[in-house]
Structures are given as C-alpha cells and as structure tokens.
Design a protein around this nucleic acid. Structure first.
Lengths: 188, 188, 188, 188
DNA sequence: GATGAATGAGGGTTCATTCAT
DNA sequence: TATGAATGAACCCTCATTCAT
C-alpha cells in the first residue's frame, strides 16, 4: 500500500504546487486532491517537509529519465546533446505542472539543505550527461564552461516555458537547442 | 515621508527574503529590519501583497537599470550584447540579495497575476534591449529566437548563480556570455 | 486469551506512563510495547479510558497486596504498622514504575470520577489496615486522625520518592516510618 | 500591560487545570477563561510550555509565602513548625485550585526538567524553613530525617485534601500538624 | 504620522478510534 | 481473534491585519 499512497501524494503535491503555488499548497489541499485524509500525509511521510523533499526527489528522477530517454535515437554527439536538452521538456516525462513545481523548489534551495542537496545531484547528473558528448566536439579546456552554459540554458528555458507555455513552446525550445549545439560545434 | 518609508520597507523586504526565504519573510521581521512598526506596512502599502508587488516592481526596475548601465562603454553590437548580459549580474546594480529575491518572486508567477504582469514587462524590456543589437549581427529571421535564447540564458545563470555563488561566479558568467555572443555572431 | 491480553496491555501501560509520562502514553506506544496491534486495545478495553481505569485498579490491588505482604513477619502492633508503611514501597510489590504511574493517576482524580472512586477505595483499604493496629497503641479518639496522618505520610513519601529515588530512598523511608510509629506509640 | 496579562493568564491556567485537569487545560480554554485571545498566550509566554512553567513557579512562590506568613505570630519553635505546616494550606495563600494544580505539575516532574527544577527549589525552601526550628527541639542527627518527614507529610496532606476537601479539611490538617510536632518534640 | 497590543483564521501535526480484511 | 490503514477532530502555534492610543 505504501508505494501507491506515496505516489498518490507526490502527484497531488505537484499538481497542488502548480495550481496554488508553493505557499498555498497546504497539507489539507494536497490530501484532498489525492482523495485521502490529512492524517495519511503524516502517516506515510513524517511531516510535510519530507513529502516536499520526496516530491522534489521524484521530480529530479523524472527529469533525468526524460533527459536520457531520447538518447537512444541519437547517434552523433550533436544529436545527443540536442536530445538531452529536449528531454528536459519531453511531455511524456516532464509535464508543465512538474516544471512549474520544480521552479518552486528551486526558489527554496537557498534556505533548505535538503532541497539544495537534491538540486546539486541533478546539476551533477546533467553535467555528467553533457560532458562526454562535448568532449568530442569542443576543445578540452572548453568542455566545462560549455556544459555549464547548457545547464543554465535549460534551466532558463524552464523559467520561460513555465511563465509562457504558449509563446515559449517546445518548438522554440527545440530550435534554440539546435542552434546552440550547432554554434558550439562550429566554434569547436 | 511616504517615498522614504516605502523605500525603507522595500529594501527590508529584499533583505528579508534573501535572509529568511520567501515563506519566512513575515511582516513582523520586515518591519523590524526596517526599524519601523508593523502598523506602518499596512499604512503605506495596502497589505503585505502590495508590498511584495512593489518590491518585485522595484527589483525589475533595478535589473533594467543594471542591464543598461554598461551599455555606454560598449561600442560594437557584440560588446553591447555582452554588456547587457553582464549587466544583469553587475554587483553595483544587482546584489546577490536582489537576484535571490527575484527568483522567489518568479516562483510565485504561475499563481499570481500581479507578479506575472511585472515579469512579462521585464521580459519585454530585456528583449527590447537585445533585438536592435542582434539585428546587426544575425539574419532577420533569427533575431527573435536568438533574443529569447539569451533571455533564457540570463535567467538560467541567475538560478545557477544563486545556488552556487562561488562556483558559478561572475567570471564564469562573463565567459559564457562572451562565448555565446561570439557563437551567434559567427553563425550570423 | 482475554485475561492474558488484558494483563499484557496493563503492564505496558504502566511502563509507558513511567517512561513517557501520562500525556505521552499513547495507545500506539502502549500497544507497541505490549507487542500487540492498536486494534487490540479497543477490542479488549472499550477505549483508552477503560484501559487506564483498569490499570489504576490493578495498581491499587498491587499496592494493597504489598502493604499486607509484610504483615506476616510482624508480631507487635508497632511492627505491623511499620510493615504496612514499608509495604507500600516494597520493591517486590511496588516497582518504581508503579509508584510513578500511580501519581499520574492521582493527578487526574479531581476531574475523573472513575479514578476518584478507585482512589477512595484504596484510601479506605489502607485505613482499614491501619486502624486495628492503632487501636492497640493509641487512645480511641485518636485512632482516626492518626490513621489519616499515616496515609498522608505514605502518599507524601511516594511523591518524594518518585522525584528523588536516590536521595529519598527506601532506607530514609524506613527510618521515617519507624520514628513516626515510635512517636505515636509514645504519645499513646 | 505585560505583568497584568501574564498574571491573568497564570490565574486562568490554575483555574483551568483545577477544573478540566492538566490534560484538558488547552490554550484555547485558558485564554477564553482569561477573556483573552489565543494569540496572546504566545505573545506573552513563548508557547504553552512556558506558560505552564511560569504558573508552577507562581504556585511555588505563593506556597512559600503562605508558609512564611504565619510565622510572625508564632514564638516557640513548636508553634513555628505548626505555622509552617498550616501555612501550606492557608486559604488566603493557597486556594484548593492552587493545590490541585500543583499536584498536576508534580505528576509531570519525572519527565520535565523545568518542573523538576522548580520542585527541587520548593523542597529546599521548605526544608530551609523547617531545619532551624527543628535544631532547637530534636537531636542534631535527627534534624534532616525529621525535616524530610514533615515535607512528605505536607505533600501527602495536599493529596488527601485535594481529593477530599470536606473530609480531610483544614481542622484535620491542623490537628495532624499539632500532633506530629508534639511527637517530635517529645521524642527529642 | 506612528505604535504595538490584540485578534482569530488557518497552518501542520497528533492520536483515539473505526473497520475492512 | 487479530491487524493496521484510514479517518478527522482537536491540539498548539503563526502571522497578516486592525485599531485605540
């Protein structure tokens, strides 16, 4: 029962944060949305804090899954880099709700050790995916700064996509990704 | 008296958000930090919400001032673009507190009309600064997507800079900005 | 099965009150300590209140057993009175846990009819043990007040013993008991 | 304003504990009884725990005041000892509510450092009042045990008085006190 | 203009109790 | 007989807001 309930509550948390904002995502709203009672939250998650941390962890895992999912179809380093970027926005893996919730967590990072740790993990995982591909198309001493730039670009596109999902849509994102990778490859 | 008090409270709000986080920036803490009584907040700002909106507005204005400030010393379009990016992180205009606070506001955007409006204004202003310079170095049909990419890159670097001010410092930011602009110019 | 389960739960309740205090002796903790499920508490004891009442009743019975246990070895009225007092603290009958738990119940007496009734029973039983022996060594019109004084002394020593088991130990208690009985006998 | 409010809330706490018991003396009930809002409790007392500690402290101070109050009219050591005992029950100083509340605190002592400290203070103060008088009427090596016995007797009479204010009334208490002191003096 | 004492709705959390299994 | 997942009322506490001074 436990895995099911935990998943239910995490899903409800993501939706609630997207809908009401981080501040107004109360335990009562989350549990009601999950169709469960408030008591269950503390039964399965040792408090709201742990539920939030578990939710962020889950989002991180999903993001990484999304980033890796498109790698199989890509053969050249350039295509792989584009796939990693696109994967961060793949609808199958990353719903707009998820991205929106993620940003809320990001804003709490400075004052929350748990969130900061999870975020660092995700940064590292993403950098770890990017570096091997960059090594094949840019100079060795450029790999790090290029990787960091791509991570920043991804995060920035999350922000823009969250705020304006229509205007800053997946097409725009894909085009920016393609251009950016092409530029990098050209510069070497 | 009014402009002075409003400024005092806005400054205190920025510091408080940076120090305690958005959630824990209470009216009591903010007014104490400003050296004023809690009653004053509601006297000069129709409630906490308006104080927060005014604070975000102020941050937006400062950011734009920072982005424009370095333009004077730059002559070529490339240098101007780099200056605009760097300006978003210029310590004289954008304190770490300000960037940190800004992010907190950004996280509230999806569920807050006031914040969303201010954010859109800032996006437009930033795009308005970038487009004229891009028109001189890239193809006409590429201007928009390039501008949007730069905005995303700036926001993403805010995120990274907030989370890791030491590792992702102003030097890294400047290098990424230079590389990115050089790439764009080369691609045309 | 019933008597076994009830005894298990009563023992666990006493230990839990001693360990965690009356307030924090929750049904969950008690049942876990007893190695049983929470549902059993309500199965065998119509709710927590009844479990507590049964526990207090059990403590009262044990105390009386302790007070009587030492009577066999005592021959003179004085020795018997001392034995009754000592019996209230005899480790074999009255564990420190039991005394500690008893006090917690006593504190609830003013607002709890069930507890008050059990307490009155114990007072009467104790007085009933003391009076026959006092009749042999003090004037008839003094028996009652002397008996009440001894009961008060016993209860007071419980308090002191609970708070400071090291300093106010069984030796001190025995000495006070001996002196007190000797005084009474001397006064006549 | 602060001293007034604190006193109001302490009085209401004593009444509430007497009326509803320690467990059911909620912040809501206490503040309602005091004619104040719940927020005020946390404004003036940094939480319920501190309110309870302050209440116990207040009760301790009153008890000591009561014990000393009757000393002025007593001249001989015997009379002074009786006055000290009686003072613990003087209606002007120690209401039945106060004694009842005190017992509730006593029951919490084993699991509460703050309460334990206050209780130890009171024990010491009481012993400090008793010893000088006992030194004049009993052998030097008997002073300590006699003092401890009287303290236990007082506490025990509190218990009995709380449970049965009618039967175990001030007259009975006074008679027990007189007898006990007379016995001690006679034994020397 | 300025204060801060006072309010009370709403937050997270605990826990006795129920009930389907 | 026995379980423990599930419930929700009630707890303590926080904090934006009001208002008499």
């Amino acid at each position: 029962m436990e895995p099911v309930r935990r998943r239910q509550l995490i899903e409800a948390t993501i939706e609630s944060i997207h809908q009401d904002g981080f501040r107004d995502a109360t335990v009562a709203k989350i549990s009601r949305r999950a169709g469960l009672s408030v008591g269950l939250v503390n039964h399965y998650f040792d408090g709201k804090s742990e539920l939030l941390a578990a939710t962020m962890q889950s989002l991180a895992a999903e993001t990484m899954a999304g980033a890796e999912a498109l790698l199989d179809d890509a053969s050249t380093p350039e295509e792989q880099l584009i796939a990693i970027i696109d994967g961060n926005f793949a609808p199958s893996q990353r719903s707009p709700e998820a991205i929106s919730a993620w940003l809320s967590f990001y804003a709490q990072v400075p004052g929350n050790q748990d969130f900061a740790r999870i975020q660092r993990q995700m940064d590292e995982t993403l950098l770890g995916l990017l570096r091997p591909r960059l090594e094949k198309i840019v100079a060795a001493d450029k790999v790090d700064v290029r990787a960091n730039a791509i991570v920043a670009l991804i995060y920035g596109m999350w922000l823009r996509h969250t705020q304006d999902p229509e205007g800053f849509n997946l097409d725009v994102i894909h085009q920016i990704a393609r251009d950016h990778v092409a530029d990098i490859a050209a510069a070497g």
